[in-house]
Each structure stands twice: as structure tokens, then as C-alpha cells.
Design a protein around this nucleic acid. Sequence first.
DNA 1: AATGAATGAGATTTCATTCAT
DNA 2: GATGAATGAAATCTCATTCAT
Lengths: 238, 238, 238, 238
Amino acid sequence: MPTRLPPPEPAAAPRRRRKEARPQELLQAALELFVEKGFAAARSEEVAARAGVSKGTLYRYFPSKAELFKAVVRQNLSALIAEGQQLADRFDGPSDELLRRLLRAWWLRVGSTAAGGIFKIIVAEVRNFPELAQFYADEVQVPADRLIAGTLQRAIRRGEFRAVPVAEATLALIAPMLFLALHRHSVGACPAAAKGMDALAVLETHLALVLDGLRAAPARAGAVRTRAPGPRTPARIA
Amino acid sequence: MPTRLPPPEPAAAPRRRRKEARPQELLQAALELFVEKGFAAARSEEVAARAGVSKGTLYRYFPSKAELFKAVVRQNLSALIAEGQQLADRFDGPSDELLRRLLRAWWLRVGSTAAGGIFKIIVAEVRNFPELAQFYADEVQVPADRLIAGTLQRAIRRGEFRAVPVAEATLALIAPMLFLALHRHSVGACPAAAKGMDALAVLETHLALVLDGLRAAPARAGAVRTRAPGPRTPARIA
Amino acid sequence: MPTRLPPPEPAAAPRRRRKEARPQELLQAALELFVEKGFAAARSEEVAARAGVSKGTLYRYFPSKAELFKAVVRQNLSALIAEGQQLADRFDGPSDELLRRLLRAWWLRVGSTAAGGIFKIIVAEVRNFPELAQFYADEVQVPADRLIAGTLQRAIRRGEFRAVPVAEATLALIAPMLFLALHRHSVGACPAAAKGMDALAVLETHLALVLDGLRAAPARAGAVRTRAPGPRTPARIA
Amino acid sequence: MPTRLPPPEPAAAPRRRRKEARPQELLQAALELFVEKGFAAARSEEVAARAGVSKGTLYRYFPSKAELFKAVVRQNLSALIAEGQQLADRFDGPSDELLRRLLRAWWLRVGSTAAGGIFKIIVAEVRNFPELAQFYADEVQVPADRLIAGTLQRAIRRGEFRAVPVAEATLALIAPMLFLALHRHSVGACPAAAKGMDALAVLETHLALVLDGLRAAPARAGAVRTRAPGPRTPARIA
DNA sequence: AATGAATGAGATTTCATTCAT
DNA sequence: GATGAATGAAATCTCATTCAT
């Protein structure tokens, strides 16, 4: 649970200690505010105010709003992906176990926290800020995709999963988790649309279903077709 | 079917027709632009320009940007939901067939078209525009939920589906579709992150897996647990 | 003498007429303010206010402060240079007469008016705004130099002037005029340093001296050496 | 002699010397930066950085940016003027020789060095900083004018020069030199407008011409009129 | 004495909305 | 009815100056 920042604490914290903690405090405030309002709508000044400093101070630490956002992304997503990749590299148990671990860790540390809101921002504003689009692709999308798709391929290679199309399966695997994260920070955060729901329950249901469907065993053959025979509409994801 | 706006002076269409077609053209232009840029970032003037009229004219038809957006939502989502509800009300075949029809229609007419971008806008900006949040909840969320959740309940009542928690299952059912729609209009539209993928393939895979998992039959009992026994983290969707 | 703009004149001028006069009024206000404060220090809002409109209106007509400045330069300098070039092209009297006409016209229409202040701005800020530097070089410096240097060469070709180094002579010719223009808008405009002086007297003195010195006749040979024999310090103008 | 600042840690200079040299280094850095960017646009922090100290230290030595600038002016201009005045006071050779010495010294020690850039600053920014205007008038303009005008009067009194209007002649005398100094630090420093030219050649040409014209001898009477008989336009230098 | 963290006024530019023509 | 000129509230970012350490 993201702990609230303590109030300014006028004299308690000596200058020196404050200064070292500043970037952290600013990043935390920025994460919160970006998630609440989005990148464009979040005002730098409010980020600063929430971290208990003035506008000018924010700019001492981060040269622009865009760089501030990048720092938020790095702090909250990059580390986790790197850890996941390390785990995957040395893991030698069954692949579905690896997948479960990766996805659960993601949910616990990202999806269910404020960091999950970053995806809302990306989804919402990537088209308006090409610089951020590129950054996100390089810093998050590519490594994360390599991690999950790589794990699926490992599973297929080891005969644990059927030979499914990897890109599509990757998306099907993570879509509900991302969607839940998105939801929590948008409609789910609105009084108007509030509707209590157990996110973890949804996720577990989803995971159970999908991992089950991926399994190599020929159980109930034909019941699950990887590729539907329907009309080939050209609905390609750009 | 969404057609491109004609260039400023289409000799074919006499002035009379243009005038009557105005609202349509404005709505179409607004849909496109809102989806491209988002609600806040789309400029009224550009909407007007894209519809071939002036800013002032736009305001003659819609009293504010917010009302324009509402009209876009009504035109593109409300009608489909109503149709779906009508279908559900008089349908008496198997429930999974009904669900397939509803979801396929949604994909064909919303998810795979510009209208699907409305969800991106909602996800991104509800929190910044409470008025829109309320409107969306009333106009889309509640009726759509009633339609899908109602169908699930019908299926359970008729013994076609197992007794799953309806709210969670509804979400798990629609999440990947919404997610794909979102994706198409955000990361998927960015050159930086372009990655060809067959959306329909993802959807069919997903539908097959999930509907399969929902079925009442005791097939491979235990393989799919509706509720995971793991630690009950309080990760409730707000 | 630059006539002051009339006060806003609330109802007298109909919307339409105002609109057509706007760019002119804005350019006039911009010229005045740029000359008073310099490019960087002049505030867009004050330019607008001086033209009797609001900040936003200024930006309807000129997309940025830099473009506004360019428009001011074009209006006040480019036209005169072009006229001068035309005169030179069809002039067939004695070259010193041509030079006198060119320089007097410059003084009357630029040097002695607010437009002369543009040189102050260029001198002061060209290094801080490379975009303006390039613009000025292309739009003013090169054509003006061609005009004057060309005239000197014509004079030399026709045997009217001695074979002086053209570039240096061009500078020596215009330096005092530019300097006077500069002076009028800087130190000369300060109460602290006010010192009445007859600009035209200075100029005529200068012209007389220099044109006299340039003449081809061998009068008092040696009295005026084009190039001093002193130690060749490498004091080259960059 | 202006030497480049040493890099941050010059082993050769012990801490002691550094400390004593501080004001010098700061003044040198300030001169360079003021000349490059102008008074308003030069950032205090960059001055400090260029002198190898921190912002705070700069403020320890000079209480404000304006005072720093004044110190730069005093160091670079006042001394030379005082020297010139001393020379003039005890000089008893021909006046044109005195003038040549004064102007050449000025060019060698000011016009051709970074100090010459101070005039660019004055020209550009006096109007925006009345405090500096007053300071400059008192500290530079008045004494310098007294020196040159005094010398002219001496020459006239001694019958060496004709009875020219002193103020105008003073200006005509120094204008090209100032102009060249200005030029070197503005347009001349811009790659866009670079045009090699021999500054000293221009100056010598000018000096030769003007001193020649001033001479008392009735040489070629009428060729050089001190005051043109043309229409008396009221083009007075403010 | 020296540092550099902090401040906050201020500058350019954007855009929803109004309303005279 | 249609137009587009005009407004002015914001929002990002800069920098001289102060002062705790």
C-alpha cells in the first residue's frame, strides 16, 4: 500500500536529509498525480506542492515534465522487469509456475499499486507525446514482451504448452491484468461508477482459465481452438 | 459505416444536403479527433475544421465540448447496447450463443472501429471530468453491464453455466475485448511501438478459452477453479 | 516622425475596419516596443496592449514573438533595400550622387525613425537568437551589402573612385550612420546621458569627408592612405 | 592580459592564491559572459561556474548582478580613461598625435578585446536599466567625452584644427571605432553573418580621412564642409 | 567562508467560448 | 445562420537572490 507522504515537517528534518529524500518524494508525488490526472493534465506545480516544495525546486531535480515522467516509469516499472528477466533466466521449474510467479509479482508490485496507473497514462497519451511513446517502447514494452513471450516459447519448446501463436497468446495473457490496472485508476476510481469487485478473484479466474487452455495435454480436443475458423476480417492490431 | 469526410466543397452535395448533414459530419469529425487526441487535447476548432465548418458553427449545434462528446457517445454506443438488450430479451437459444453474438457484434461495430476509441477516452479522462463520468456510467456502463451480467445470470439460471461470481466473470469476459480496443487506439497506433497482430485471433482464442471454462459440465474437474485459494489480499477494485 | 497610435477608439471603428488594420497596428506597436526594450525583454503582452488588443489577439496574427519580429524587419527594412536596389539598377548619373541618395533615403526613412532601432536589437541580441541571426543575414545584411558594395564597385569601374578595398570602405561608409541610429535608441534615449546633438550635421560631415577621400583625383596625394602601413595586428573582424 | 580561466583544480595555484584571485576571476568570467549574452541574459550561476566557484560565492563578492557589472565596467574602462586623461594633461606635442595615441590605445586595450563588448551591452540595455545608465554616464561617458572633446578644443585653441563643432566632431571621430567594437561582438560573432574584414584597416582609413579633414590648413577649400547647408531637418540626437 | 537548495515572480503560448458582423 | 476575431485563464519553465548547513 503506498504510504502517504508525511506533511512538510517544518523543523524536524534537517536540510541535508530533506535534500537527499527530495527526488524520492517528488517521484512519489509525481506518480500519484500523473495517475490521477494524466500526464498532460497534471500540473508541475501541483506535483511540487504535493511533495511539499515549490515549483522551482521540482525543476532542480528534473529538467522537464517529460523527464520527470520518464523517471517515474523507470523507478516503477524498469526494475521489476529486470528482476523478472533475471528470475526467468535462472528458473528451471515448470513454465506455468514461472508465468504465475511473474504475473503475480507484477500484480502485487505494479497492478495493484499506484504504479499500475502508469499504463493508463500510456494508453491515454502515447499518441500525443511521441517522445514518451518511444521511451515507453524501449524501456518497458520491448523488455516486458521479451520476458513473457520468451517464457511462452520456453514452455512450447519444453513441450509444456501447445504451439500457440506467441504474440497473440502473450497479449491474451496480460490483457486482463492490464485492463484491471487501467480500470482501477479510471472508471474504478470514480464515485459515479464505483462497483466493488475482487480484482484478485478476476485475475485468478483468468489465469486458471488461460493456463489451463494453453496446456499441451489433448484434453477435450477441439474444445479450445487456438485460431478460430471464422471469416478472416483484417482486424490487425496496427 | 464511417466514411471519410468529403473535401470542403463536394460539388455533388448541394448546399441543402450539407446543412442537414452537418450534425452527422460534426459527430464523425469529433469521434475521430477525440479518439486521436483525447477529450481534453482535441481542439474544438480542429473538429469544426475537419467537418468543414467554422468554430462558431460547431457551437451552434453543440453548446459545449462536453455536450459534443456526449452526443458522440450516444450515437456510437447507446444504440448498440439497446439493440443488444432487445436481442437478449427475445432470444431463446443457448446462452453461450447469445454471448457470442453480443460480443461479436460489439467487436464488429465498436471494438474494431473508431468508436472503440471512446473507451480510451473514458479510461483516460473520466477522473478529470466528473460530469462525463456520471454520464458514461448512466448511459453506457450500467446498461452494458446489465446486458452482459444479465446474460450470465440467465445462463446460470438455465444451468448452462456454472455458478460463477457474475461481476467478476463479466469483467473477465469483456476485459480482453476492451483492452484490444484500447490498444488499437493508443500504443497500437504509434509507429514507435507498432507490432502487427491479429486482433480477431486474440479474441477468438480468448472467447474459446473462457466460454469453455465457464461451461457447466464437470470436464476435468478442478482444473479451473473459479476462486483461487491463495492469500486474500484485499485487492478490491475500488 | 512616427505618429502615435490613436487610443482604442471604442465604438468609432467598426469591427471589420479594425480587423484589417490590426496587423499594421501590431507591427507598429511591436516596432516601438522592441526598439525600447529589445527583443527578449519586450513582453508580448505589452505589444498587444499597446496595439489596444489582448495577448491572444496578437497570436492570431503572428504565431510567435520571433515571427512578429521578422515581420517588423521585413516591413521596415526589406522594402527600402529593394527600392534602393531598383534605383541603383537604373541610375546612370555619377556614383557619388547615387550613394548620397541611397544613404540619405536610409537616414530619412530608417536611421532617423523608430525603424533605426532595429539595428540596436540586432547588435544586441543576434548572438542569443541564432534563428534571427540567419534571418537578418539573409533578409537585410546580404542585400544591403550588395547594394552598397555594388555601388562602390560601379564607381571604381567607372573611374569615379579610387580602387579602395570594397568591403572595408562599405563599412567605413555606413558605420557612422548605423552608429548614430544605434545611439539614438540607446544612450541617446536616456535622460541620464541626454546630450543634444545634430545628427544630420554629423552625417553630412562624415559623408563629405569620406566621399571626398574616395574620389579618384590624385589631389593631395598621400594625404589619405587607404591602408595604413602600421604594424599588421591581426585585428580581423570575425 | 585576458587569460582563459584555469580548469577547476589547477595544481599549480595553491588554495591561498585562488582565494585572493577570486574577484579577478569573477570579473573576467563576468566580462566574457556579459559580452556573450548581454547583461539581462547572462546568468549569475554561469558567471560563477565559469570562474570555478558557486553561485553563493559570487554573491559574497558582489552584492548583485548590477554591482558585478559596474565592477566590470570600472575595471575595464575607467582605468584606461584615467590614463588617457593623465596623458592628455601632460602631453605637449601636436594634438593630432595625441588623438592618434588615445584612439589607438583605446582600440588595442578595449576595442579589440573582450572589453569592447561592454559597449554592446550599454547600447543594448541602458534603457532597461536606468541605474546602469546613470552609472555609465558618470563613469564612462562624461570622462571619455571630456577627454576627447577636450583634446579637440585644445587643438582648435592651438590653431591646429579648424573651428569645428566639438560635440559632433567627437562623435564622428569615435563612431567607427565603437561601431567596429560593437560589430565584433554581435553580427561579427555569428557564423551566419561571418565576413572576414580587417578592422584595423578600416580604422586607419577612417582616422586618416577624418584627421585630414579636420586640419586647419585651407587645403582644397570647400571640398569638406563641416556643416552641410542642406535642409535643417530636426534630426537631433535625443 | 563556501555551498547549493529553495523560492516565486514572470514570460510565452494555447484554446474554449462569446458575439459583432 | 455562419463566421472568425477577440478574450484571458492557465500551464511550463527560468533565474536572481536568500540562507541553512
